[in-house]
């Protein structure tokens, strides 16, 4: 029995390690490409570069139009920070209402919420663009950030609704007996207890906002407010020459913050619940 368990544990570990290599392969490949001189990037397929250069990092960081990656990283952080704040506040408020409160034609509103994410983004782009343009918001962060504060990410509302519904209603009832109103119940019970959902929201918002190319590209046209993701694209030109090495080098750097954020927050995801724990 004990042997079988150990065997099982080792097998699991070996399999997980093989899997880990498959998962990491692209990252290693990008890392190695970022150190290869340009003429080797597409001809030398090995993971270990036969010649090393740091040139791509130097060229890459210099950025474009007089703005270095310092600016682009700063912009990305501002955008991501505001987006996380917006999503957590606005979506949790809405989710609480959908999960616990009673209001007229609730099901219809819920359907509309889900319906709004079923329509491909490309066809609502122009009406939204016209709206933001008339507000004078184009070429600022506002068209990207304000929607987050208006809970337009139905994904997170729905996610939080599912989590809140998993929280026993007795807790609400007990609080109500203690004289808490809906606002106090939300603030004191629901919000802390949905930590896993909030952490998940924060992680996903970080990654998706960081990587989101399409809407950033449409709304941020001046390089001074470009994000890392936009700047990365500018190394490439399908109609001409592309700076592949610099693109790989900066891609590697752009992954670092998301990765660190993920590692820190996934601890919260795992440990956070232990401290608030459902009794």
């Amino acid at each position: 029995m004990k042997n079988r368990k150990r065997f099982w544990g080792i097998t699991k570990f070996v399999l997980l390690s093989i899997g880990a290599f498959v998962m990491l392969y692209p990252l290693l490949w990008m890392l190695s490409s970022s150190f290869k001189p340009i003429h080797l990037i597409f001809s030398d397929l090995s993971l270990w570069p036969s010649e090393f250069t740091l040139e791509h990092y130097k060229v890459g960081w210099a950025g474009l139009s007089g703005y270095t990656y310092t600016t682009f990283f700063k912009n990305s952080f501002i955008l991501v920070g505001l987006s996380i704040l917006g999503n957590i506040v606005a979506c949790s408020l809405a989710a609480y209402a959908f999960a616990r409160l009673d209001f007229s034609i609730k099901k219809v509103w819920f359907a509309i919420m889900l319906g709004s994410i079923m329509l491909p983004y490309h066809v609502v782009l122009i009406p939204q663009y016209i709206l933001f343009n008339n507000l004078g918001w184009v070429d600022t962060f506002l068209p990207l950030v304000v929607p987050k504060f208006l809970a337009t990410d139905a994904f997170f509302i729905f996610l939080m609704v599912q989590f809140i519904r998993g929280i026993p209603k007795e807790l609400d009832n007990a609080a109500r007996v203690d004289g808490c109103g809906p606002i106090a119940i939300f603030a004191k019970i629901i919000f802390p207890l949905m930590t896993p959902a909030l952490v998940t929201t924060a992680i996903f918002t970080f990654i998706w906002t960081w990587n989101d190319f399409f809407s950033q590209f449409i709304y941020l046209s001046s390089p001074k407010i470009w994000t890392v993701t936009l700047a990365l694209r500018s190394f490439l030109d399908a109609m001409g020459e592309s700076l592949w090495g610099a693109m790989f080098a900066m891609s590697i750097l752009s992954i670092v913050p998301i990765f660190i954020f993920f590692i820190i927050f996934q601890r919260l995801l795992i440990e956070g619940i232990a401290t608030t724990g459902i009794k």
Partner: peptide
């Protein structure tokens, strides 16, 4: 009224950025 309090931002968002463009 209570639900509206919680849903106010969402309402604005869904109408202006959701329903109208739709």
């Amino acid at each position: 009224k209570i639900a509206l309090l919680f849903l106010a931002p969402w309402f604005i968002g869904i109408i202006v950025l959701g329903i109208v463009p739709m």
